[in-house]
């Protein structure tokens, strides 16, 4: 039987749908017998939900004009040196 550390690591992989069938089986059996990991697994599902709600892909972030001008000036100096 796998230990709690291994179980939680499979559980984390599973949040990205990348745990193998055999691993999921091992996890299922462990969770059936271990209250702590059952709780961890439930909380982990919830965390995945929270990440989906609160963390978003960066939309196109742009450099402001001043930053761009500074970059341009510095680069020009290098080109001409």
């Amino acid at each position: 039987m796998i230990d709690c550390s291994k179980a939680s690591s499979i559980c984390n992989k599973n949040q990205y749908c990348e745990a193998s069938f055999l691993d999921k089986l091992k996890l299922g059996l462990h969770i059936f017998l271990c209250k702590r990991c059952k709780l961890y697994s439930e909380q982990n599902e919830l965390m995945t939900k929270i990440f989906k709600i609160h963390l978003h892909k960066n939309k196109d972030v742009k450099l402001c004009k001043e930053d761009k001008n500074a970059l341009k000036n510095n680069l020009e100096k290098k080109i001409n040196s």
Partner: peptide
């Protein structure tokens, strides 16, 4: 390319100043 490169960097380093510096160093 600077916007694209800045965007690429900021998703990886999460800090405006560091991202800006890395983009500049890349150009150099």
């Amino acid at each position: 390319h600077s916007d694209y490169m800045y965007n690429y960097t900021i998703t990886r380093v999460n800090d405006h100043e560091i991202a800006k510096d890395l983009v500049q160093e890349t150009f150099f």
